[in-house]
Write a protein that binds this DNA or RNA. Structure first.
Lengths: 211, 211
DNA sequence: TCACATTTAAAACGCACGTTTAATTTGCAG
DNA sequence: CTGCAAATTAAACGTGCGTTTTAAATGTGA
């Protein structure tokens, strides 16, 4: 028998990833989960806490796995931007342990988390996994010694934006692509197409560096 | 004497660009504009119509100006991705006619429009200015004959995502950058930093093209 | 089986929102 | 000045939300 708490989590993940956090009401979630409305507040305390619980379930798998991959690469004598970015693929695949469609779900949740409650997720992530994020940044810096920290900071966030937009708008974009020139794109394929784009963007020569 | 309708538009632009469309209530707008709550529905019919009016005011300046720039470049024997992207800078500056801080306002509005009401803005833009968008796409294609339409489609939307994220999260990111390593970034500077990133990402070699 | 803590259930609360109504004020042509 | 349309105002409406309350049902250890 499936516990009420688990039914809520599963339904919340699904609806949050499809429509965003604020656009999803507790009534939709409890209806989808086939549980009573009040049980969310009983088991999680508030909607905000439910959101954090949903995110934490994925973060606690993804970020430690990312840390392992980064440390492995850090032992190499040298590495490229692409190498560092590729460290994310295995941890993403590891999210299948959480849920069969975990990788897709997580990327979408990330997108909504950043675009809706910008500050909260970043604070939570930095508090619990700040050293992983920091390490990632340092390795990108090592792979691109010609770039200033400031330029790198912005380019990493441009990359984040590209990824989040692709995930959140992914379904709509896939439909447009299909209608415009009849080529379908798989959800997982989007992330693979993203990597060379982001890698080239990050490593681009900085025009300002000539100053 | 400033008309009520104009006071509403000015206040709405400001608040929409700061907090997004859905996060901004009509009560906030009418309070900021110092007009009666009901006057929005009297002058614009609905909140949705107000949003469209706000967006249209910028689109009708930006997109025709972009068309002019693109046509000028198209007459050249050849051009690069950067050249095509640079066509956007003058039309952005032209938005100062609409409002002193028009360029910044417009980019932020774009960001929220895409992340909140994804379908609507695209539909509106394509209906009224579809040929401009189409022309932009074709010129990027011409500048990158080695890339498939599918790859180009996704990379252009990655670029859009990078820009929108930078604008919407721009204020928060600027504060983080300042706190993390003490370097301030101007709002207008963000767009300039974006161009080389996006240009390199779009023109990157496509690993899939080897297949 | 009994007593007690845990969990579920139905209903209501208070709040903020976009919108509508109806009355009043304002602007202006004849 | 008069009369009428346009504009403004204050108040209320209906809806959906997250949350709380109170009672009933369920599970559990002695």
């Amino acid at each position: 028998m499936v516990k009420t708490k688990d039914k809520i989590i599963l339904a919340a993940e699904k609806l949050f990833s499809e429509h965003g956090f604020e656009q999803t009401s507790l009534r939709q979630i409890t209806s989808e989960a086939d549980v009573n409305l009040a049980s969310v507040n009983y088991h999680f305390g508030s909607k905000k806490s439910l959101i954090q619980a949903v995110m934490a379930r994925y973060q606690m798998v993804f970020l430690p796995a990312l840390e392992v991959e980064l440390q492995r690469l850090a032992e190499q004598p040298n590495y490229t931007t692409t190498d560092v970015l590729a460290c994310m693929t295995q941890p993403l695949i590891a999210l299948r342990q959480v849920r069969l469609d975990g990788p897709v779900i997580y990327l979408r949740l990330l997108g909504y988390a950043y675009s809706e409650i910008q500050g909260h997720l970043r604070k939570f992530t930095m508090t619990h996994y700040g050293h992983v994020v920091q390490g990632f940044f340092e390795m990108i810096q090592t792979a691109n010694p010609h770039l200033s920290r400031k330029t790198l900071f912005w380019r990493l966030h441009f990359s984040l934006g590209a990824m989040l937009f692709a995930q959140v708008s992914g379904q709509a974009l896939r439909e447009i692509a299909l209608a415009d020139f009849g080529e379908a794109t798989q959800a997982e394929e989007t992330f693979l197409k993203l990597l060379p784009f982001v890698a080239a963007g990050i490593s681009a020569v900085d025009p300002e560096a000539q100053n």
